[in-house]
Nucleic acid binder design. Structure first.
Length: 477
RNA sequence: GGCGGCUUGGCCAAGUGGUAAGGCAUCGGCCUGCAAAGCCGACAUUCUCCAGUUCAAAUCUGGAAGCCGCCUCCA
């Protein structure tokens, strides 16, 4: 049972066979650091984090590179607007990005290179393109890639250069030999950041940094290149053109692209003013709820962010933790050697193009079965029951290390949730405990009217009372 | 205009040609003083529609309708 990956390049699922046995080179396009990251960035990062973890679990030695684009027109524009230097801006947002991704329990890539730290590599790369007749330098300092020099242009996005030439939406630039040619190096205007180059003072275009940096860290040819669907054209198409034009061999074997996050069924856009930032989401939901949400649909499908979905996801997470809590009450321990049905199903799901949605379905199915087993045992689990549940317990632990969820101790999870509620609702826990004690007393005295009155009172504070075998507990709804 | 994708129960959603996972919600039941939690049962003879291939199709082919994305910065 081997890994299958949907490859954008061939528009089908393919067996994953790395170029070098046992090793995987993976490059994912990171953010342009000129603004706060939104939930869409989080999806891409979390999805590739899951992929990275899974490849590692399959015993591949993975070199995972995710860049920061820290030289760009948008950064310059922001700098002109705020008065901060470009470096101040990029460092601020790189820090913020790292903090937010750490909060979301995302593993750091092997390398996180910045474009500005690879200017010489970029210049060398452009020079190689010029030397091979694939790029040209025009008066004024621009260097363009020549589309006509690369016959396979369009193979990733399924576009035909002739059709595109006819399209009215391509801006025509007098200096370009063909309207489709794109910028490799652009001259600096007064006041703009610049680097010295054979073509004068200037800065790199957007696409070239990824070709240069991926070559630097992963070589001429590597296994996986990822990013959001929107990058297929023109960004990734142009990367292929640059790299294959220079090296004459296949740039990337598997192209993986994640789908978008919609907000209330609408695309995030400036005009709708509905960009939902990661920090806002983190303020409302726990990191685990966010990860669970982002992984609850297949990574290539669009996913809709809205309050109802997040509420449902949150309930689902409670359910899993409640089950884990029950297992721990039975003194289950983590036996790494023991592998159960759940893990086998999980492996199959993950090997089928990283189907985390299917995998999560399996977890819930196991929770349901496990709960039934516990109920049927009525507190007296036999050896076979303990064995089955022990495997489920271990399997969920293993799964948690891949999906990056279900990582907490159940009691801690519910405590954190409760603490969060206490702060948000401005509740005094001592007062709640006092009411609970009063209610317990009333119940002992069979004063059920009083007991229910107290419960109603707590209910108004969004507090649910639960009379369990180990006594009465409370939680927020 | 060019390219691509999606359409599965009230909602979200998985689905490998062999007869519809899972979650949320709802309705019964067990448990409970009553609840909550948990469990059990019910809940799509059917997968947008039409036609075709096949012993067999949600899954393949052709067509129609609706929705969405990319082609300009975008995860």
């Amino acid at each position: 049972m081997s890994l299958k990956v949907y490859n954008t390049l061939n528009a089908r699922k393919e067996d994953f066979i790395p170029i070098h046995e046992g090793k995987v080179g993976m490059y994912v396009c990171g953010p342009t650091v000129y603004d706060t990251s939104h939930i869409g960035h989080a999806r891409s990062v979390v999805v590739f984090d899951m992929i990275y973890r899974w490849l590692t679990k399959l015993n591949y030695t993975v070199t995972y590179v995710r860049n920061f684009t820290d030289v760009d027109d948008k950064i310059i524009k922001k700098s002109n607007g705020t008065g901060e230097s470009c470096t101040e801006i990029t460092e601020k947002y790189i820090d913020e990005f790292h903090n937010e991704m750490d909060a979301l329990n995302v593993l750091r890539p092997t390398m996180s290179p910045k474009a500005t730290e690879h200017i010489q590599h970029i210049i060398d790369f452009i020079q190689m393109l010029i030397d091979k007749g694939k790029a040209y330098h025009v008066e004024g300092g621009d260097v363009y890639f020549s589309i006509d020099s690369f016959k396979e242009y369009g193979k990733l996005s399924g576009r035909n250069p002739d059709d595109m030439r006819a399209g009215a939406r391509i801006a025509v630039d007098e200096k370009k030999q063909s309207p489709l040619d794109f910028t490799l190096w652009k001259p600096a205007k007064p006041g703009e950041p610049y680097w010295e180059s054979p073509w004068g003072k200037g800065r790199p275009g957007w696409h070239i940094e990824c070709s240069a940096m991926s070559y630097e860290y992963l070589g001429e040819s590597f296994d996986i290149h990822g990013g959001g669907k929107d990058l297929i054209f023109p960004h990734h198409e142009n990367e292929i053109a640059q790299s294959e034009a220079v090296f004459g061999c296949q740039f990337v074997k598997y192209w993986i692209h994640n789908g978008f996050v919609d907000i209330n069924n609408e695309k995030m856009s400036k005009s709708l003013d509905n960009f939902t930032m990661i920090k806002e989401v983190l303020a409302d939901y726990s990191p685990e709820v966010i990860r669970l949400f982002l992984l609850s649909k297949h990574y290539r499908s669009p996913i809709d962010y809205n309050e109802d979905s997040m509420g449902e996801i949150s309930l689902g997470l409670d359910r899993v933790y409640a089950f884990m809590g029950r297992l721990e009450d039975e003194n289950m321990t983590w036996e790494t050697e023991s592998v159960g049905e759940l893990w086998d199903g999980f492996v199959t799901a993950m090997n089928d193009d990283f189907n985390s949605a299917k995998a999560l379905g399996l977890v819930f199915e196991a929770v349901k079965k496990g709960n039934k087993l516990l109920d049927d045992a009525k507190g007296k689990l036999d050896a076979s029951g303990r064995d089955i549940l022990g495997r489920v317990y271990s399997d969920i632990q293993s799964i948690s290390s891949i999906l990056g969820i279900f990582l907490m101790e159940p009691q801690d999870y519910f405590k954190v949730k409760k603490d969060r509620g206490v702060v948000e609702m401005a509740i005094d826990p001592a007062m709640v405990d006092d009411l609970i004690v009063q209610r317990v007393t009333a119940r002992l005295e069979k004063n059920f009217a009083r007991a229910d009155e107290i419960r109603d009172q707590l209910q108004e504070m969004h507090i649910i009372v639960e009379d369990g075998a180990q006594g009465t507990t409370w939680r927020f709804e």
